[in-house]
Amino acid sequence: MAGLELLSDQGFRLDGRRPHELRKIECRMGVFAQADGSAYIEQGNTKVLAAVYGPHEMRGSKSRGLHHKVLINCQYSMATFSTGERKRRPRGDRKSQEMTLHLKQTFEAAIMTQLYPRSQIDIFVEVLQADGGNYSTCVNAATLALVDAGIPLKDYVCACTTGFVNDTPMVDISFVEESLGGPQLTVAVLPKSEQIVLLEMASRLHVDYLNKVLKTAVKGCKDVYVILDEVVRNHVAQIASSVGSE
């Protein structure tokens, strides 16, 4: 389409959001019975399933185990039907490997790893439908799954991808906004302490604007936190009531 304007004069984005508005977030916790913890999250059209196993004993070679903290094992994969064109390799390609590594780093910083030496936690995330902000949605899903599994965390980990168009930062960008180029800043934070656990940037952005974009991104993360927190509380309340009624 010719002349696609990411941000209209009146300050609306292509999908009708304002720059600071998140996409619609829907989530559910405890979707699988087998896994220790699981969650399903939709951020607009990006849909992610996360499952957590552990902490448990080291599987496979015991020598991989660390004596002072838990080993976090992640796997990021995208369903073959997740994108417009059928994806040939659901996992193990370069992009997925990179994502896996990022997830691992993120959660190593958030999980209280020192509590479970010589053991292992597995986090599996599967992107069912990809529509931009895959990484941040995965982080949010994994956080919920970890909470569901009852693994001690320092805080929620909330992530948000922010774009920058016409000198305006745009929060939680979609696939169209991502693919039209321009700088992107992905941040994962611990919302209460505002500590940044992961920061990644694609494309070039003038350093003068960095602070502005970062602030918006952190604000976006905090908005995500409000939603996640509510979901967790509702979930816990539901379980408690069902336990109480028995």
């Binding site: 959001r17 998140l22 829907e26 559910r28 939603i227 509510e230 979901v231």
Partner: peptide
């Protein structure tokens, strides 16, 4: 399924 959105006035449709 719990549905949360910052501004509950927004209606999401798909095309």
């Amino acid at each position: 399924m719990s549905c949360c959105l910052l501004d509950s006035n927004l209606v999401k449709i798909e095309k």
